[in-house]
């Protein structure tokens, strides 16, 4: 590790309960810049690392609204203004016939916003992340649970943080290269 900057300290746990406990303890201890990694979503863990709420639903609402208004406008403009066609003597603005496509486009835009929004807010695709420098981190996608406290945290101190993590009964505490 000579010459490389320290990104943080990573503690390894073998149960989701231990990780949840550790994350809550780190928060109480005053750490703010840390993250927890687990092979599946654990209820309460996001709150414990200080991320109680995501903006995603708001974005999705506006995505759906855009699809709804845009979809209706597209059909109305095309069949009423752009190229009016008399179909069976019905009025040009026969709006009930425009509802199915309006509905489909609402769902389409909302779903695209959901997925693109989730990926973008998560900062993915991320070709590189320091956490992967720890060889045992490969187990984060199998059956191990990790807590990573970043060196940038104002409370971070290589020695004290190491002791703090060890006191939480971490299986192993390793240094993470930046």
């Amino acid at each position: 590790m000579a010459g490389r900057r320290l990104y943080g300290l990573m503690a390894e746990f073998d149960t989701p309960e231990a990780l949840l406990y550790a994350a809550r303890a780190a928060r109480e201890e005053g750490y703010r810049k840390f993250d927890a990694y687990s092979p599946f979503g654990i209820e309460g863990l996001a709150e414990a690392v200080g991320f109680p709420k995501t903006r995603l639903p708001v974005l999705v609402f506006f995505g759906g609204l855009f699809g709804c208004c845009g979809g209706f406008f597209m059909q109305w403009w095309a069949n009423v203004i752009g190229y009016p066609l008399n179909i069976g003597g019905k009025p040009y603005d026969s709006w009930p016939a425009f509802i199915p496509i309006t509905f489909e486009l609402t769902i389409l835009c909302a779903a695209l916003t959901t997925v693109i929004g989730m990926i973008a807010l998560n900062g993915l695709p991320a070709p590189y992340h320091p956490a992967f420098n720890v060889p045992r981190f490969a187990l984060a996608s199998r059956d191990h649970f990790f807590l990573l406290i970043e060196a940038e945290d104002p409370k971070f101190d290589p020695k004290e943080t190491q002791e703090f993590l060890e006191a939480l009964h971490a299986q192993e505490v390793s240094e993470v290269e930046a």
């Binding site: 994350a23 979503g41 996001a46 995501t54 929004g117 807010l121």
Partner: peptide
Amino acid sequence: SMGWRGSAKHWKRYETASLLL
């Protein structure tokens, strides 16, 4: 996998997204 690393924040958004979808 786009560099998925199982972060708690990612899981939160991920599960919200799954539910919305």
